[in-house]
Computed example of a mutant assay.
Amino acid sequence: MSDPIVLVSPAMAVPSRFYRPLVAAFEDVGWQARALGRRGFEPDTPVASRSADWSYGDEIADLADAVSAARREDPERPVLLMGHSLGAQLAIGLQSSADPGRTADGLVLVGASVPHHRYYPYGGLPMLAFASAIPVLARVLGHLPKPAFGAPGAATLMREWAHFVRTGEPPFDASSKVSTPTFVVHLQADAYAVSAANKRFIELFCEPSAVTRWVYTQDATPDGGTTDHVQWVRHPSVVVDRVVRWWGDAADRR
């Protein structure tokens, strides 16, 4: 079987160019990879405003289009969808709801979480306060302005995310658990996708037999590396090597 192509779905408010080191690391091991755009944060997309709004569903549809395009380019090549943070949520939303021809052959999820405030220290009270303010700000201003987390954020998507934080209920169909081979990377120093929120993500969305969970510890990082929620991308070789190993093992089991 051909080596896969990796489609990277970015974190909230993170542009595709940030993932250049990750794309390069995959190419160094002979795989193809590309970072997908995040609406509102790419040079060719409008910034969120009262007249430019979108939802989780719109972002999931973008992922489905990207997977379909990769399959048209090379129907024999497997497609791995690598979701980071918000991108992990969108990847699960895609696998749960899209037609099989528009879903991936495998998932790699980094910094994935159910961001319900109760999974965070001290009851996640700062998160809860922020999530409670988002609907008001979005209604009054038509978007979530800087310097708020995720800003400039689309009103609908940020309201949906805030509802997820307040209730733990995902803003997409999760009635069927994902059985796609899935590699979950939990970052040891991740203050956003803490261990309890990461484990709840797996429990809520994934068939247990489909999941391999790996904790990326700080002592395993290369020189200059980190297991921070975002900055791990700057030195991604250890993660890439583990993904390659996991995919080979998964292929042997199929």
Rank of each mutant, 00 (worst) to 15 (best):
R102T: 10
A112L: 07
T212S: 01
W247T: 02
E73P: 08
P126T: 07
S55L: 02
L144Q: 03
A64Q: 14
P135L: 05
T167F: 05
H143S: 13
W232Y: 08
F130I: 05
Y122H: 14
T221Y: 02
V67A: 03
S195W: 01
G150P: 03
A138K: 01
S132M: 05
R17Y: 14
H116N: 11
I5A: 08
A66G: 08
D62Q: 06
V240D: 11
S49Q: 04
Q89Y: 02
N198P: 05
R71K: 08
I202F: 08
S195L: 11
L63W: 06
W31F: 08
A91R: 09
F205N: 13
S49N: 11
S55P: 06
F172S: 00
A91M: 03
A191H: 12
Y56T: 01
R139C: 10
A196T: 10
V29W: 06
H186I: 07
Q188M: 08
A196I: 04
G40S: 05
D62R: 02
R242T: 06
G57K: 09
A154R: 00
S68F: 01
L125V: 10
Y19T: 04
Y120M: 11
K199V: 01
D58L: 05
M12I: 11
S237K: 12
K199T: 12
L90A: 12
G124F: 09
R50G: 15
V244N: 04
A210K: 03
V165Q: 09
S176V: 06
L94M: 14
S16L: 05
R38Y: 15
G168Y: 10
A25T: 07
D58P: 09
A24L: 12
C206I: 00
S68G: 13
A70T: 10
A197I: 02
L141C: 13
F41Q: 03
E59I: 00
T227S: 06
R166E: 07
T182F: 12
D28E: 15
R17W: 15
A48D: 03
A91H: 10
Y192W: 10
Q218F: 01
S49R: 09
V29A: 11
G248Q: 15
V215D: 14
M158T: 03
Y192M: 14
A210W: 06
M82F: 14
D53T: 04
H186N: 01
H235F: 07
D241R: 15
P115K: 04
E207H: 09
P135N: 08
G57F: 01
M12H: 11
T221V: 12
V165I: 14
A33M: 05
L128C: 03
V29Q: 12
A220I: 01
D74H: 12
L63S: 08
D219E: 13
V8D: 08
G30L: 03
G168H: 06
M127C: 00
G153H: 09
P75T: 05
V211R: 00
P43S: 11
R242V: 00
P135F: 01
G87N: 06
A191W: 05
P222A: 02
F26S: 13
A70E: 02
P236A: 09
A88T: 07
I134S: 02
H117Y: 14
P4E: 02
I92A: 11
H84P: 07
